[in-house]
Each structure stands twice: as structure tokens, then as C-alpha cells.
Simulated assay, not measured.
Amino acid sequence: MSNPYFCELYVDTNEDIRKVEAALNSAAADAFSGIFVELPIYKNDNFQETSINKVPYDFIECSRYYVELGTVEQVPDQLSDFQSGVAVLVKSLRERGWFVTASCDFEDAIADVTGWNWTEGNPEPPGRAIAV
């Protein structure tokens, strides 16, 4: 069942998980003013080092971490702010040079605000350099 108050974020970076968690918490503090969210970060068991240069980009295999981002309570008046906050958070993390892909019911809104989110028709993140 879909949940508009929830989004998985796949984070493709070589940074240590503690650094990613700190950046995530800092960006979330700015993105979700007045909205209580939970955002645990996990090592992605599906990460495959050999997939980093694979074409097309597979955000699940290329991401060392994933985040389960959701509101603590489902407050209808906060839904729009939550979803736009997710876009702000994704944009902030991407500004660090990380490839962040949102997997949720409102992926189109993420792409509209940030300029990209993975789709079958447009799988390559902007700025991705592929080693040959």
C-alpha cells in the first residue's frame, strides 16, 4: 500500500555512514521545520561495488546507503510541506556531490524541484562520470 508520508532515499557516496548521517540530520533540520520525521540510515545490502560504472545507472546497486524517511504522525495539513521538504533534503544532499534517488509516491515532485530522479527513460544522474 502506498504511503504519501514515506520515502526511501538511496544515497550513492563513498563517505562514511557517520558523515552521511550527520549531513542528513543537518539538512533535515532545515527541510522539515515544524514536522517531526524519522530518518534512520542503513547500509544497503544490495550495494555492489562492481555496479558503480555500469550503464544504465542502477541506483539500488550503486548506493551504499538507504534512508527510510517518514513523518512521525500523518497530519494531512503537513503532507505538502513534508513532500516538498523531501525535495529540499534531496537537493541539499546532491549539492554535496552525492547521487540521491527518491523512491516514493511523489517521485515526479522530487524531479520537478531537483531537476532529476531516476526513471527508466532517464536513469543517469546529472554529472555522473563513468570510468572506462
Rank of each mutant, 00 (worst) to 15 (best):
V37N: 03
S2Q: 08
Q78D: 09
A129T: 11
Y5G: 02
S2N: 12
C104L: 01
L93I: 10
N53F: 12
S103G: 10
Y57K: 03
P125R: 13
V37I: 15
D45Y: 14
I60C: 03
C7M: 09
N46F: 14
G97F: 11
L93D: 02
C62V: 13
E68P: 09
G70Y: 10
A29D: 04
M1A: 11
T119F: 12
N44A: 06
I130K: 07
R96C: 03
C104G: 01
N3A: 07
I110E: 05
D81Q: 09
R64S: 15
A22I: 09
A27C: 03
V132D: 09
R94D: 06
G70A: 13
W118D: 13
N14A: 15
Q83C: 03
E21Q: 11
K43I: 11
N25R: 07
T101W: 01
A87H: 01
D12F: 09
E120V: 11
V11P: 00
Y65N: 12
V132C: 11
S33Y: 06
D45H: 15
I52W: 07
A102K: 06
N122D: 15
S80H: 14
F47S: 09
V100Y: 04
Y66F: 15
V88P: 00
L39C: 04
E21A: 14
W98K: 07
F59N: 10
N53G: 02
V100G: 00
S92W: 06
C104E: 02
Y5L: 05
K43Y: 15
S80W: 09
A29F: 00
V72M: 13
L79Y: 11
G115V: 08
I60A: 03
A87I: 00
L89N: 00
Y5T: 03
I130L: 10
F99T: 14
P40S: 01
S84P: 01
T13P: 07
G127A: 14
E49C: 09
A31H: 01
D81T: 02
L79N: 11
E68A: 04
A29M: 11
A31M: 00
Q74F: 08
I41N: 03
E8R: 08
F6L: 13
E8P: 00
K19H: 13
G97I: 07
G34S: 08
Y10D: 05
T119G: 05
N25G: 13
S80C: 08
T101Y: 05
F106L: 03
L93R: 03
V72K: 15
I41P: 05
A131F: 09
I110R: 04
D16M: 05
P123I: 11
S26F: 05
N3D: 15
T119I: 06
V132Q: 12
V75H: 00
I110S: 04
